[in-house]
């Protein structure tokens, strides 16, 4: 069999995507309500944030606008996981019911095929909201707009996304081994709530834990330091793109290992 190249995969992704959008459009009410729900989630998160900062001008040396930058950064970084990898949420159901076996018989990459089946448009609302916050904070902080800065922002946003995607993949793959793994995935998703705080608020022990054991600090804190505080960038920030790629690769391996282990339910 001929090795399939990137072009082939991109072409097929859009074909599958079109089918997904068509099927979504047949549940228009659900689509509209879910989109409103997603926007509400972001708005309410922001209101909570705003109420907090009304009472306190700064937290641990981080000004309101810097925190806002972190907040927007984490929202934008979380968009890819929401848009492209949302089918992970259905993995447990598919494995449990036996439907997952159908993916195993396709002559293309299993992981790719499974994830491409769902594109979550709701994530775009979050992207817009996050970008708005980020740009606002960027202007208020008086950060420079140079090609290098933008390139850095892009690279480190991608880094942060990769880490979140990796965590979600690994958590979703838990369903190949444990029953009722919903809570594992739910736990991983709760991490993203904590990503918007600077890791310096924690004591050294927990700073270590949230950096190396539950790598929440990599979702927004370390990558955004490169842009926010260019004078005091720790080594971990520069390393984060590599860590992101490694994490993603490991999570992909875990996921595939679980998938190839899968033997169906016999139905």
């Amino acid at each position: 069999m001929k090795k399939k190249n990137l072009r082939f995969y991109i072409r097929i992704y859009f074909k599958i995507l079109a089918q997904d959008l068509k099927s979504k459009m047949s549940y228009r009410a659900d689509f509209i309500i879910s989109t409103i729900g997603m926007i509400l989630t972001n708005v309410s998160g922001f209101i909570g944030f705003w109420i907090l900062f009304r009472n306190f001008p700064s937290i641990n040396g981080w000004s309101y606008h810097e925190m806002l930058f972190l907040y927007g950064f984490s929202l934008v970084a979380l968009t890819p996981v929401q848009c492209f990898f949302d089918n992970n949420w259905n993995l447990r159901g598919n494995v449990y019911s036996g439907d997952f076996i159908k993916y195993c018989f396709r002559p293309i990459n299993l992981f790719f095929y499974y994830q491409s089946e769902v594109f979550d448009i709701k994530g775009l609302g979050q992207l817009a909201f996050g970008l708005g916050t980020l740009i606002y904070a960027w202007i208020k902080l008086g950060l420079a707009v140079t090609p290098l800065m933008l390139l850095k922002t892009l690279v480190f946003l991608l880094t942060a996304s990769l880490i979140m995607i990796a965590m979600q993949n690994a958590a979703a793959a838990a369903c190949f081994w444990i029953e009722n793994s919903f809570y594992v995935l739910d736990l991983a998703m709760r991490f993203k709530e904590y990503a918007k705080y600077p890791v310096t608020i924690f004591s050294p022990v927990f700073r270590f834990i949230f950096t190396f054991i539950f790598p929440i600090a990599f979702i927004a804190y370390y990558p955004s330091l490169v842009i926010l505080r260019p004078d005091e960038v720790p080594v971990l920030s520069w390393l984060s793109p590599v860590i992101g790629i490694v994490f993603f690769y490991v999570s992909y391996k875990i996921w595939m290992r679980g998938a190839t282990r899968y033997s169906g339910t016999g139905s």
Binding site: Y27, D30, I33, G37
Partner: peptide, 24 residues
Amino acid sequence: YTESIWGINIMKQVIVLLLSGATV
């Protein structure tokens, strides 16, 4: 009435958690 579960549920959860004082 709506066929939507996720959307309805997330709206409820967000509104209840914020307005009940559970987040702040």
